[in-house]
């Protein structure tokens, strides 16, 4: 190794190190560029993206009506048995026999959020909701019933 190369290698090395220090140093002296979010504190102002696949819900309107006809297509399409549709037979006012849902069971612990149930639902009864705080103390609480107590099928949905 010649002497000039030796000395220049030292200088090149030091300069490259200083360049790196410039990057970290510049961030140190610009604390307002911090990107961290203070999560539990900003819960009030936190807005999630509307399409976020947080969980699957069954939207109900103001009259406590949903659109699920209990056809079971979501259950067939679900790859890993997350959804179970329990339906029952009722007698309508006209005297016809009709199948409506009793319980739409959704096991969030098994859900992989592939979106096939939402996509294939013929009556758009299911939707994704941007809720992400799913931590519970008891695993049984991860099994949810999506249709609300006493809800009925919306008029006009077959």
């Amino acid at each position: 190794m010649n002497v000039i190369g030796y000395i220049s290698s030292i200088f090149k090395g030091v300069i490259s190190l200083l360049k790196g220090m410039k990057v970290t140093g510049s961030y140190f002296f610009r604390p307002w560029t911090v990107v961290t979010q203070k999560y539990p504190e900003n819960r009030k102002t936190l807005v999630m993206y509307e399409r976020m696949k947080g969980e699957i819900v069954m939207p109900h309107n103001a009259n406590n009506e949903h659109k699920c006809t209990g056809c079971g297509i979501c259950e067939i399409n679900c790859p890993n048995g997350t959804i179970e549709v329990i339906s029952k037979q009722i007698q309508t006012e006209e005297g016809k026999k009709k199948r409506i849902i009793d319980k739409h069971i959704y096991r969030i612990g098994m859900c992989t959020f592939c979106g096939l149930c939402v996509k294939t639902c013929p009556s758009n009864a299911l939707a994704f909701a941007p809720n992400f705080e799913h931590a519970v103390f008891n695993r049984a609480k991860l099994t949810k019933v999506l249709n609300q107590e006493g809800s009925v099928l919306e008029k006009g949905v077959e």
Binding site: K12, G13, S16, L17, K19, G20, K22, V23, T24
Partner: peptide, 10 residues
């Protein structure tokens, strides 16, 4: 600047 050029990294 931080990594690629750094003499230690090289």
């Amino acid at each position: 600047q931080l990594l690629t050029g750094n003499v230690i990294f090289q």
